[in-house]
Design a protein around this nucleic acid. Structure first.
Lengths: 228, 228
DNA sequence: GTCTATAACATGATAGAC
DNA sequence: GTCTATCATGTTATAGAC
């Protein structure tokens, strides 16, 4: 057994994933059936369930791959870039670049957003590690900025939430090449970075302090804080 | 025909709705089946489809009713209240009061959030009038505050978004009687009202102007602005 | 227009044999 | 790890009663 070569199972899994995404892109998430996907991958219907617990799980697996790709891309692009505004732009825009051709089925990822116990819930326990990974990219992007400890803990999550909102907006955005989303992201990032500069002023800090504390407390209880 | 009395159809519809919600509360949205709901309401399975185009539509109809109730409640409570912070608190907390026992199936409302063309999508065209109604409550709540025209248009939507986030947080909130959600809402509202006071200062205005313009442009194109 | 009754369909998901 | 058979359930269809 060559350790480098994929096992049979891994190849089958990859094939199902590939064919599934192919069909989602063509027909959309609803219209593409598990039976069709299985047929296209030349396996039995039941076999897909050996690898993916549900239809949505195929999209989730795609998203896992997106995260890996994104992380690599960010590390490549961010290297040597010291300006905060630029760094944040790289993180978000490169994510959208990766997702750009798959807006049609990306919405399936949001299906269980309102169901805390579902394994694929965006905010649920089942996706905790992915969230942490994703927020980690933002933590790195702001690593060199001088901010309070509270902000250093809060900001990655605020930015992660913002990036989630951007993806949602992206899905709805019918402007050519989703220019509107890009513009909105840029506008928000401008605002965020200008805002961060302001926080060096004591007046602003006092103003925000109680709210920061409350938010931190909530995140802590929810088990959302990154192990630093 | 008595104009006050409900027609037979309305009674049946109401019965299906009532029994449906009953079962959703007991078993959750997934576990309750259309067949069971029909049985419980003593109608044929097909009859439920005469009134509700889908299972989710029952939850949507519930939400319609929530909106009507909410609007009435807000108008009652807000009368004579002049403090902005209080007025906003009334709008959001009374909404949560209405929803409090139905957190278990409320998540079904968010199922199509990522699917722009679905009739039940939270941000889609099919729910536009409900959104406008809901945002209208916020518009009224801020009616007497002195703010720029831009903010007067933007703020109802910002608050509506915030209230949507609060509902989502509410669904996830496992603290006793969802106290954490209440605290978070209060914290955010404090911040918002303090922030609005600051916007009377020209410095802050200049800082926010370009972003406000951009947001307004986007909302306008998306057809989201309230007819004033 | 408001249903009943029943069957049928499509499809996501599961069980169990090999 | 893969298959076939089967199930459960949302949804549609048909045909008709009042």
């Amino acid at each position: 057994m060559n350790a480098i070569k994929k096992s049979v199972g891994e190849k089958t899994r990859a094939l199902i994933l590939e064919k599934g995404l192919e069909m989602f892109r063509e027909a959309g998430f609803e219209a593409a059936t598990i039976r069709d996907i299985a047929k296209s991958a030349k396996v039995a219907t039941g076999a897909t369930y050996y690898y993916f617990p549900s239809k949505e799980a195929i999209v989730a697996a795609y998203y896992d791959h997106v995260q890996v790709t994104h992380e690599a891309k960010v590390r490549e692009l961010i290297l040597g870039e010291t300006d905060l505004r630029e760094r944040l732009g790289i993180v978000i825009h490169s994510k959208l670049d990766i997702l750009k051709d798959d807006r049609k089925f990306l919405g399936a990822l949001f299906r269980y957003t309102g169901e805390p116990d579902h394994p694929l819930s965006v905010f649920g326990k089942g996706t905790k590690s992915q969230r942490a990974h994703s927020a980690g990219l933002f933590r790195e992007a702001i690593a060199d900025v001088e901010i309070t400890d509270e902000l250093r803990q809060l900001l990655p999550w605020a930015l992660w939430m913002m990036h989630l909102g951007a993806i949602l907006f992206f899905i709805y955005d019918e402007s050519a090449e989703q220019r509107r989303t890009r513009a909105l992201v840029n506008g928000v990032l401008d605002l965020v970075t200008q805002f961060l500069k302001l926080t060096s002023a004591p007046v602003i800090r006092t103003f925000l302090q109680p709210f920061q504390g409350k938010m931190l407390g909530i995140l802590k209880e929810a088990g959302w804080l990154l192990e630093s």
